[in-house]
């Protein structure tokens, strides 16, 4: 996993609430057995007509936002399915941070496993950043995970919360499985204890 420390980039505004995983990556693209290459189908049905032509009004098709690295989105981003194809598609497109007032639980987890930082901020601050994002490519936003701040192009800065363990893993690009396997003695002990207590499991 690529470590995440700081990111300065173009932020794309997506003020729609309840952007779900079927919008982020429609199911016809879940048939892959790989993790890569999904960026071209990110937001497919909002981004392209059925015959594959770009829909000019869609934010990521506008010249200013084609290289966006950050999304500023409406409430409850990522609701719906558990498909990790959603963060894979965002990452493959080049999005490394998403800012919203709230995220769906599974999507939020999945982001951290893939080097994407989901940032929760109060509605008034998200609105400020949404306005900043609307300025286009000249308005670069900066996310500093170490300092836990998002800074708008005009210098206004907001602090966000992040779980310390997740922050540590993200900043160092750590593999969860490797970390958990270091606790294999605890897992062995748990299995031994519970096989006596609940043998039917």
């Amino acid at each position: 996993m690529t470590p995440f420390t700081t990111l300065t980039g173009i932020a794309a505004p997506m003020p729609l609430v309840n952007i779900d995983t079927d919008m982020i990556i429609p199911k016809q693209f879940l048939k892959t057995i790989k993790r890569s290459g999904l960026g071209r189908n990110l937001f497919d049905e909002m981004r392209f007509t059925p015959d594959g032509a770009e829909i000019a009004e869609f934010v990521l098709n506008q010249p200013a936002y084609r290289k966006a690295g950050i999304l500023v989105a409406g409430d409850n981003f990522g609701c719906g399915s558990s498909r990790e194809h959603a963060p894979w598609a965002l990452l493959d497109f080049g999005i490394r941070a998403v800012i919203s007032t709230s995220f769906a639980d599974i999507f939020y987890n999945n982001c951290f496993k893939n080097g994407i930082l989901p940032i929760v901020l109060p509605a008034d601050q998200v609105e400020v950043l949404m306005e900043d994002a609307r300025k286009g490519a000249n308005a670069r936003m900066t996310v500093d995970l170490g300092a836990q701040t998002v800074t708008a192009s005009d210098g206004r800065s907001f602090s966000f919360e992040v779980d310390p363990f997740r922050k540590h893993c993200l900043m160092n690009g750590l593999d969860d499985i490797g970390l958990s396997l270091e606790k294999v003695a605890s897992i062995d002990a748990y299995e031994k204890r519970t096989s006596a207590l609940r043998p039917w499991v």
Binding site: R83, E84, I106, K113, D176, I177
Partner: peptide, 9 residues
């Protein structure tokens, strides 16, 4: 529900 990284975990 869990994502694929967690399935692997």
């Amino acid at each position: 529900g869990i994502g694929t990284s967690e399935v692997e975990h």
